[in-house]
Design a binder for these strands. Structure first.
Length: 113
DNA sequence: GCCCTGACGGGAT
DNA sequence: TATCCCGCCAGGG
């Protein structure tokens, strides 16, 4: 697992560090893996995350406004919201309630870069 | 091999 | 404060 294992792999490793009940953003993940600004790619990686072996909590990644912009990539349009609520994150109108309080940015670059 | 697009974000206007 | 614009990197036509 080094910087040559692929951009996607690094994204998954970072996302898997997000603890249950907390959420992060595409930009934060991108910055965590050493590619600030590549937030778009992070989203693309999440879309492909379901075909990746292992569990990747893609539902814990939302955009900077706390909106569930990637809900359409899930089995059902409400799956993402239900997963978040089941972890204690309140969602209203496709948006995380009190996003700034649930936001998590404690990525450990250790083992990724 | 070129062009377009995509779960975004930040700086400029 | 609200919009617009451009860069980020990979994949598909």
């Amino acid at each position: 697992m080094n910087r040559d294992d692929g951009f996607f792999f690094r994204v998954y490793e970072a996302v898997k560090q997000i603890p249950p009940g907390r959420v992060s953003t595409y930009g934060a993940v991108a910055a965590a893996i050493g590619s600030p600004g590549a937030s778009r790619m992070v989203g693309w990686a999440m879309n492909k995350a379901f075909s990746y072996p292992g569990f990747v909590p893609a539902h814990r990644v939302v955009n900077r406004n706390g909106q569930l912009t990637g809900k359409h990539a899930f089995p059902n349009a409400d799956t993402m919201q239900e997963l978040l609520e089941s972890e204690g994150v309140q969602v209203s109108n496709d948006q995380v309630v009190d996003f700034h309080e649930f936001f998590w940015d404690g990525f450990r670059i250790s083992g990724i870069l």
